[in-house]
């Protein structure tokens, strides 16, 4: 996957490039908003890592211009500012994800992989967690190599959880995935799907965080 890294801090950019290349990504680096927009005018990048604090323009304006122009290219925002408004604004402006500095490189890599799988540029389209494999390309789920049958909606719920393994997905977040599918959602739909999924999956694979949502463990 080709990543455009927009970051004005040279040591950080170099460190990031090294880490990302080590993980097998192709990284191009620019250090101003204008250069980023120029680079994105030609469609040879798969995604963007965008720092909000740029010398020539605000990172949010870069994002806005980018989205106005057309591009539905995935964008992960990096910022040293901790205010929530920035996060909300960033996501409103169409960022796909958001990381606050100093971020954990593993966290960044995990989010890159989610995007990678979504774009279909991943070396493997399979997410393996414990004994469960989810093949995003083939829309298949298996336990220890044995395929199991899931309804479309159950598959969507499981995909949402497994893509975000280690993080909590709230009922609303999962619901919005189902809405994306274009289906009407009953008030207890998510509970019903999770209940059915649990019967088909290993015990304790999907965990409930009472009052918050559902999660599956990373390992």
């Amino acid at each position: 996957m080709r990543i455009l890294l927009v970051e004005d801090d040279m040591p950080l950019a170099q460190g990031l490039q090294q880490s990302l290349r080590h993980e097998g990504f192709v990284v191009n680096h620019v250090n101003t908003g204008q250069l980023a927009l120029n680079a994105l005018a030609v469609p040879d990048q798969d995604m963007v890592i965008l720092d909000l604090g740029l010398p020539d323009m605000d990172g949010l304006s870069v994002l806005k211009k980018l989205r106005n122009n057309k591009a539905d290219i995935p964008v992960i925002i990096l910022t040293a500012r901790d205010s929530i408004e920035h996060k909300v604004k960033g996501l409103d402006f169409g960022a796909d994800d958001y990381l606050a500095k100093p971020f954990d490189i593993h966290e960044l890599l995990a989010r890159l992989r989610v995007i990678e799988r979504r774009l279909g540029t991943a070396k493997t389209s399979v997410i393996q967690l414990g004994s469960v494999q989810l093949d995003i390309a083939a829309h298949k789920v298996g336990i220890d190599g044995q395929d199991i049958n899931l309804s479309k909606k159950e598959y969507m719920v499981l995909k949402a959880l497994m893509e975000n393994a280690g993080r909590i997905q709230s009922r609303e977040q999962i619901e919005s995935r189902l809405y994306d599918w274009g289906e009407e959602v009953a008030s207890n739909a998510v509970e019903v799907h999770v209940h059915n999924l649990r019967k088909k999956l290993p015990e304790k694979f999907i965990q409930t965080v009472r009052g918050v949502g559902y999660t599956v463990n990373k390992s």
């Binding site: 801090d9 040591p11 950080l12 990031l16 604090g53 040293a80 901790d82 500095k101 100093p102 971020f103």
Partner: peptide, 20 residues
């Protein structure tokens, strides 16, 4: 925040790279 967090990120990433 900006002045401290960016170098901290650099530190973290480089620790990761050195580990690799």
């Amino acid at each position: 925040a900006h002045e401290l967090r960016t170098p901290l990120s650099v530190l973290k990433i480089n620790v990761h790279n050195v580990r690799n």
